[in-house]
Design a protein around this nucleic acid. Structure first.
Lengths: 371, 371
DNA sequence: AAAGTTTCGGAAAACGTTATCAGCACCTGA
DNA sequence: TCAGGTGCTGATAACGTTTTCCGAAACTTT
């Protein structure tokens, strides 16, 4: 019992394959009565179009490749969920490739996806420098959007969170709640998240204390570094630790608790990204929530654009994040342990106005893009 | 500059398309000299086979659909990584669909993947009962393997961890380290993980204490329940909390620490699954590690099987897990805080012999399957 | 040397769509 | 009445492979 084809539907409805195709694809008007007959026959035969044949003929597979460095990075699962949701809403399927942080594997996966004739690619580059070549080559063949990280200037369209705004939100919040001696626990390197967050801290922290921009400790984006960094930063007697991502914050929080420090009474801890673990820590970690659904929607929108010929300027879209205030940065007066929901809800309103400010910043700012 | 096709390669190498196809696909022997010419031309033209055309002609897309309930469930990212790795090794690409715990969305995704002519499906059912229909229908059309969870008997092949063995490992470890008053913090319901782990606890805990099998507290698989469950279980004055998964264990650990209880000095905590958070907690949580890579390999192997005609008995494969001992269950004598690596390594050897016992249990136990 | 057997290569028919082209009927306005 | 639309529909040619069928050599075997 093999599947029904257009031929079968045509035979059953007494018209030609061309007509059936037109009815089902809606590409050209067809007589109302005929159309009804065709639809009935298709329904009755349980006709399902063959995507392979369609792809061959129309040169479009309805498929997007998603290439990421490590699905186990705790920030990516939500991003993947939102991306697949946004793309499915456009009727596109998602081919997933995890390249295990290896640029060579990444290049292979990209080549394989291109051979599979994906309509477009979504890439979170594994490496700032070493991903560049493969990404650029792919971008020359299909629409390609970089997400979350960059890989050099002028390679392709890109969508990411506005790290500077996020860091400002954190520093404003800490200032407003009376913290003065802050330290930054960050990541070394030139990758966008590491560098942008570091620079934003350095340029923004001066408002709290002229010396604050100098109190920077750099490692990598890991819990282990968060733990170790506390031992280094402790000599500065900080009353707040601003961490460049949530993993660092989790590690810092653990080490502080091991040392018997009171969080947030003695020292506040903040993260970045709002991975699930940030909410599940005790106390919950105040952090910057990336607007994941919106990032995904922007990426999907860029991929929907018709493939213009000739080189057009690449678009860099930055979306402003929200601050999620949890207990790890509660004001010192009341050492507010316990359920975090109250303070979180209270701050969410304050957050609303901020997120409104920076809805979408399209750096190329073409007029026709504004809706 | 469009892609090179077989025609182009044929023209360039002075032979027919058929010959080129044979050389490149290796389906039939071809003269050495001709083959060399073809390969050179293909290389020179940077020929890439068109998967759409190939799929149309050979009725195989080289694509597998992966349907899961929630990519944000912290156990799934590693599983997804290992599955994609195993499938890519077979030259198959992975179409990902996240159905957000909604059986209706799951059914839609399955239908879409079938329309896209996936060669096979890998499904982690969203619901024990409500996923059954769509899964059964799909299994009738393509090879289908259920993972992690079941959805009723006799629906399809399935691969999962051996929950009973895992629970035994935990109970043996607790007994060996002197724990006697254990409680079980589990999940209600009939889903396989919830039920099997609960039953295994009830049948195994008697060895520690005749009353232990009765000390069972049921909620769901969440951190919140773990926190709440501690308050219920605390009246039993336990010296060990056996949790049905790592999220519950994380919550339990947090609540215990909030109450000022000493973990592991006063009470041990164990989890199940070995999600990343278990290792990153402080103290690290002793847990049962699912053999994720092996589960993925088994699933891939089942999908590789040629599609036998007629109904064959479904295979249920259970793989034995390992115990990962971390500080949350360190012996009470030495209240061993600090680095967990030492005790973990020490136990790993003990674990080795256990994992050897239950390498692969193929419940259908066909002789030709044993290698 | 004739008859089989193997080996290699080409022509051409699928696979199930979509797109192009042309035909047919029917109108509309001179 | 006829030229020129304006729907609607059907044949048919792609799309780029794989695969079947055949023929032509080149070897074996008798």
């Amino acid at each position: 019992m093999t599947d029904a084809t257009l031929r079968d539907v045509a035979r059953a409805s007494g018209c030609s394959v061309a007509t059936v195709s037109r009815v089902l694809a809606g590409t050209r008007p067809v007589g109302a009565e005929t159309a009804e007959r065709v639809r009935a026959a298709a329904e009755q035969l349980d006709y399902r179009p063959n995507h392979a044949a369609r792809a061959l003929r129309s040169r479009a597979t309805g498929t997007v490749g998603l290439v990421l460095p490590q699905i186990t990075n705790p920030f990516y699962p939500t991003l993947v969920r939102e991306l697949t949701r946004a793309l499915h809403a456009d009727g596109r399927a998602v081919l997933l490739a995890d390249c295990d942080d290896d640029p060579a594997a990444e290049a292979e996966h990209i080549a394989d996806l291109l051979a599979r004739r994906v309509d477009a690619l979504l890439v979170i580059p594994a490496h700032e420098r070493r991903s560049r070549e493969a990404v650029a080559a792919a971008a020359a063949r299909v629409p390609l959007v970089l997400m979350d990280r960059g890989c050099g200037p002028g390679v392709a369209d890109s969508v990411a969170v506005d790290n500077a705004t996020g860091m400002d939100l954190v520093l404003d919040h800490l200032a407003a709640t009376g913290r003065r001696r802050v330290c930054f626990l960050g990541a070394a390197g030139t990758a966008s998240a590491a560098a942008e967050r570091r620079l934003a801290y350095e340029s923004g922290a001066g408002a709290l204390d002229p010396d604050a921009p100098g109190r920077v400790f750099l490692g990598d984006f890991s819990v282990e570094w968060g733990r170790a960094a506390v031992d280094e930063a402790w000599h500065e007697r900080p009353d707040a630790l601003v961490c460049a991502n949530d993993l660092i914050a989790v590690g810092a929080l653990q080490r502080l608790q091991q040392r018997g420090a009171d969080v947030p009474g003695q020292v506040a801890v903040t993260g970045f990204d709002d991975i699930p673990m940030a909410a599940l820590s005790a106390p919950g970690i105040t952090t910057v929530r990336q607007p994941v659904a919106e990032l995904a929607a922007e990426a999907a929108r860029l991929l929907r654009r018709p493939p213009e010929h000739g080189s057009r300027p690449h678009r860099t879209i930055r979306l402003a994040p929200d601050l999620v205030v949890r207990d790890s940065s509660a004001p010192q007066q009341q050492s507010g342990h316990g359920t975090s929901e109250v303070s979180e809800v209270a701050e969410v309103t304050e957050v609303g106005e901020v997120s409104e400010v920076g809805a979408v910043k399209d750096m190329t700012a073409r007029p026709e893009e504004a809706q």
